[in-house]
Design a protein around this nucleic acid. Structure first.
Length: 262
DNA sequence: ATGGTCGCCGAGCGA
């Protein structure tokens, strides 16, 4: 079961890139972030015509997440538990049926948090605490779980081409990194990192549109795939589709994926 | 220190 995450940065602007990548990469399950539309504005038919089922959790203009699956899905949950007043569409969860295992796939778009300090940063840290609580519940199932998406956290200096540029940024502040570490340390495996544990630079998943960041490979790694122990035991491989950042009108993020023997 | 680029939609915000 190949499971991927892609921050698409506006589905209406990126439907062509998405469908081309789907046929090229051949994932079985995809979570999307920043669809930037209400559910009715999502071009589901174009994707359904390619053999997918589509579930969206949309919002006007900002945020918004979705699940695409070519495998049967048993349950869908929209919204991160823990705050009924939270209006932002940043979380969607699916139980996907593989041939051998059911896999819980939690797609997330963690708040950016800038400027920090401030209310947006407080919201980010509170959201991360809610994610940690949901993560504990999912780990307690002792089943294969993949919690993946745009975490908006640079975990370590080697995850940025120029870490010195990020020291005051909500993506790299010590509190953000500590909150991410606290989640990982519950027992999750960082699928991309374990494919090359001793890398000293990168790999990256995001390059800003500004200042020729892509041309200069001035990237950061903020899209992550966290695996429960039962999912990590099934891992066959993981990767980053870096070439998706080239070409005409790309997203500023690229897809990340993990393949499970599920 | 500033501005640099996108996508949302049709001005300015969020990233």
């Amino acid at each position: 079961m190949k499971i991927a995450s892609f921050n698409i940065n506006g589905i209406k602007a990126r439907i062509g890139q998405l469908t081309a990548w789907l046929s090229e990469a051949q994932p079985d399950v995809v979570v999307l972030q920043e669809i930037k539309t209400v559910d009715e504005g999502f071009p589901a038919e174009l994707i359904e015509d390619l053999g997918w089922k589509v579930w969206t959790h949309g919002q006007k203009s900002w945020n918004g997440v979705a699940v695409l699956s070519r495998l049967p899905v048993e349950e869908i949950r929209r919204g991160l538990p823990g705050d009924d007043a939270d209006e932002q569409a940043r979380y969607i969860e699916a139980v996907v049926m593989g041939d051998r295992h059911a896999v819980t796939v939690a797609g997330l778009y963690l708040p950016n948090g800038n400027p920090a300090p401030g209310p947006k940063y407080d919201y980010k840290l509170a959201w991360m605490d809610r994610l940690r609580q949901r993560g504990a519940e999912l780990l307690a199932t002792e089943q294969p779980v993949v919690m993946l998406g745009d975490y908006n956290v640079i975990p370590e200096p080697r995850d940025a081409a120029r870490p010195e540029n990020w020291v005051d940024d909500a993506l790299f502040l010590p509190e953000s990194r500590a909150a991410f570490r606290r989640i990982v340390n519950q027992g999750w495996t960082d699928a991309i990192r374990v494919t090359d544990p001793h890398a000293t630079r990168g790999p990256f998943t995001f390059w800003d549109y500004q200042r020729q960041a892509w041309e200069r490979d001035n990237g950061i790694r903020i899209d992550h795939l966290l695996l429960s122990p039962q999912a990590a035991d099934l891992m066959r491989g993981a990767g980053i589709d870096r070439d998706q950042r080239a070409g005409v009108k790309p997203s500023d993020h690229v897809p990340v994926w993990v393949d499970l023997a599920a």
